[in-house]
């Protein structure tokens, strides 16, 4: 594990060394992806519901669906995708060195990542917050009762910093156990090597869903941070950032206007809503403004359905992960999901 991470970092450094230019100049990523005929997405190596391969090696999940939607919009086929699993430590290096085109890996958008790390987070696809999971028989009902507890934490994440801040602000002590991946954290937590496991609340729910006895573990009510999870692209190639943002907006707008994977074909012919007509390419050529064709959004929606359909199929209340829409409901239903107008 360690070695892989280390070698990965060295390899990434070498890649920075050896790649002569073409990093993030305007329009380069789109041209490279079209030429390759394949989109390369950096994804979580295994977080059920968000990104996980099944027994046959087919990836599925919330982040995977966004990646496939982008591929459908750009390359024209939702299956022309290659997934590169990245750990919390290697993900941004993989992106900035050009190893992946876009990072759809439940990554928190933050000031330092936006500026100093030279990344762009085009739009948030999941509003999350950091929580704690403990065993039920521990008798803990609030994170403030965790004084002196041992807590498993993934290194290289924003949660690591939130944890230190929150415990100091509340003047309680804790003992961190640094782990490298969600799988390792799961193992350490189940073995009792830590009292609590902390990461984004969605990640906790997804991790718990994979347990043999999910009913014996609870997620504490405290949410100690804002974790806006967003796809990430490199600074500099604004057109590529636009494509990622507008693809996500297309999925959100589709839900808002009632466009689903089922009625997509029908609506693209018969819809009288001018916004839907523009979105699906029946009138105007919005795709052309960013180097794509008119039906880019139609293909993106066809790939896995609109935002609501993707949510319901991967992490929604009907799935083992069972997350409610909450903040991630449409703005019309009291949530934060809001797409800018398609015109």
């Amino acid at each position: 594990m360690t070695k892989t991470v280390f070698l990965g970092a060295v390899a990434a450094a070498a890649a920075v060394l050896l790649s002569t230019g073409a990093q993030a100049a305007e329009g380069d990523t789109l041209r490279a992806v079209k030429q390759r005929g394949e989109l390369i997405c950096g994804v979580n190596p295994g977080l059920v519901g968000f990104a996980a391969p099944d027994a046959n090696g087919n990836w599925s999940g919330f982040d995977i669906s966004l990646c496939r939607a982008i591929a459908a919009a750009v390359v024209g086929d939702a299956n022309k995708v290659r997934f590169v699993p990245t750990t919390g430590q290697t993900r941004f290096t993989a992106l900035s060195s050009g190893e992946v085109d876009v990072l759809t890996r439940n990554s928190t958008a933050s000031f330092q990542r936006d500026t100093e790390l030279a990344l762009d987070f085009p739009a948030v696809n999941y509003y999350d917050g950091q929580g704690f999971m403990v065993r039920k028989d521990l008798g803990v009902t609030s994170a403030k009762e965790l004084d002196g507890a041992t807590i498993c934490i993934q290194t290289g994440t924003t949660t690591e910093l939130n944890l230190a801040d929150w415990f100091r602000a509340n003047n309680i002590a804790y003992q961190p156990v640094n782990i490298d991946s969600n799988a390792e954290g799961e193992q350490q937590y189940l073995a009792g090597a830590c009292d609590a496991y902390t990461t984004d609340a969605s990640g906790l729910a997804a991790t718990r869903a994979a347990f043999a006895d999910p009913e014996n573990h609870i997620i504490l009510p405290e949410i100690i941070s804002k974790e806006p999870l967003a796809p990430a692209v490199r600074h500099g190639d604004n057109n590529w950032g636009d494509i990622v943002r507008q693809t996500l907006f297309a999925l959100i707008a589709a839900e808002e206007y009632g466009v689903t994977s089922a009625n997509l074909e029908e609506l693209s012919k018969s819809s009288t809503n001018p916004e839907v007509q523009r979105l699906l390419g029946a009138t105007d050529n919005l795709g052309g403004m960013m180097g794509l064709d008119a039906e880019w959004a139609k293909r993106a929606i066809a790939a896995g359905g609109n935002y609501g359909e993707v949510f319901a199929a991967t992490i929604g209340e009907q799935t083992p992960i069972g997350l409610a829409r909450g903040l991630n409901a449409l703005w019309t239903q009291g949530g934060l999901m809001y797409a800018t107008p398609f015109r």
């Binding site: 450094a13 430590q89 941004f92 990542r113 290194t155 290289g156 640094n178």
Partner: peptide
């Protein structure tokens, strides 16, 4: 050293080259 300077510090600051 590898876990502090080459691990968390490297990740949180994004200074791969310098840390390595």
């Amino acid at each position: 050293l590898r876990a502090t300077l080459g691990g968390t510090t490297l990740n949180q600051t994004g200074r791969e080259m310098e840390a390595m």
